[in-house]
Write a protein that binds this DNA or RNA. Structure first.
Lengths: 224, 224
DNA sequence: GTAATGCGTTACGCTCCATAACGCTCTTTA
DNA sequence: TAAAGAGCGTTATGGAGCGTAACGCATTAC
């Protein structure tokens, strides 16, 4: 093996840091192009040109276009997961309903601010690719749900859990996710363009509340 | 203008009928390939080869790939619309709740049986294309909703309308659509693979009932 | 200081898209 | 029935992108 001296910051040699930086730059450039032309029309040539390189150079970092896309998908998962955690934690741990609503809002806001990443994760999967062995996609779903599941668990722990629409809590969470996701994806893909911002915000709150009730989160007190 | 004789069936000359048949064959072949490799990787060459033609011949029928895709999207809309109508009409016009549930089920079943078409309509839109001037996508949404709106109108007419979650009926229908769509798209894209068929069917019924209540359709009697 | 590794370049073959130029077949019309 | 023309498919051609190969420069290791 080649030496590993010069390990100054984080156990990474200078070369490794530069390489990691280039990888990030490539992914950033790719994401920008996806935002312009969609993930389908992503061209290695364009990526290279947009960052002052020649196309073959990219093969030093990614074996092919699919590997690059896979990396972008993985990053998108991390981004979503981080965004959900961050948004949720803006609300006091005691306010469980508030935390649920915040998580839903975080999901929506993340989708709005990261349309390319959202499309990468939840857009039409390519039959062959995009769901290689049931792997990343399913994992993404679980990770997205873990946040909600955690909330439900917290709620149940404190005995404030309402009656979910289905007995199995995990199933109830899936339904709640579907309820929120349906709104978010329709909005993200322009199917709610006929509504103005105020209406969309208002409706989303209603939908999130519905999801909360589905998961058995919100106390049924709001319906006498 | 060239003559228009030989108009035997439906005002179409023999040539026009043959041409229409070829168009259908091309679209059929294209849809099959999309089912295998996704709409992104659709190649004119493959289409031509799969039907024993040479690639340039296709340009007699479609100016380019986008025009072909646009035609496929339009067809998908028709297919969805037809499927919803057909499914709904399997239930007696008097059974409004049943018609709503049937419509929801029709939406889901259509998505399951026409994954390529579903992805074409509701999959990740290409930023430039796929929503050219707010046109077809928005139209699709409205057409899909018209069926539900019709049901709601029928219900209201007979005074059996419950109290929707939001005052505006149109907005309520959008939320109901989002609720159903979220389930369908997550299931279609494999995010519910951890559930078996029985659980998915059961959960969908719950979700559809939730959507009905959102739209103010189901009488609130089911909650004492 | 020398050898080796990493990284970027130019050069190449392959495939596909899209157009052009040509020929066959069927339809139209006198 | 014979000639003219439109429609449709073919082969031929140019251009672009993908992916590999072969080469050169900088950095790093010993």
């Amino acid at each position: 093996m080649a030496g590993e001296s010069n390990e100054v910051s984080g156990g990474l040699s200078r070369r490794e840091r530069v390489r990691a930086g280039t990888v990030e730059e490539i992914k950033h450039a790719a994401l920008g192009l996806i935002g312009e032309h969609g993930s389908a029309n992503l061209r290695f040539t364009d990526i290279a040109r947009s960052m002052g390189m020649t196309p073959p150079a990219l093969y030093r970092y990614f074996a092919d276009r699919d590997e690059l896309l896979t990396a972008l998908v993985a990053d998108s998962y991390d981004s979503l997961s981080g965004a959900l955690t961050a948004t949720r934690d803006t609300v006091s741990p005691d306010d469980l309903d508030g935390r649920f609503l915040a998580t839903c809002t975080g999901y929506r806001t993340w989708a709005q601010r990261n349309p390319e990443r959202f499309a990468l994760i939840f857009g039409s999967p390519v039959p062959g690719y995009a769901a290689p062995v049931e792997g990343p996609t399913a994992v993404a779903g679980r990770r997205a749900m873990e946040h909600v599941a955690e909330l439900v668990a917290d709620t149940a722990e404190r005995g404030r859990l309402g009656s979910p629409l289905v007995p199995d809590a995990e199933e109830a969470i899936l339904l709640a996710w579907a309820t929120v996701h349906g709104f978010v994806i329709l909005e993200a893909y322009g199917h709610f363009d006929s509504l103005d911002q105020e209406a969309r915000d208002r409706l989303f709150t209603v939908q999130a509340g519905l999801a909360a009730r589905t998961a058995g989160l919100a106390p049924p007190a709001d319906r006498p």
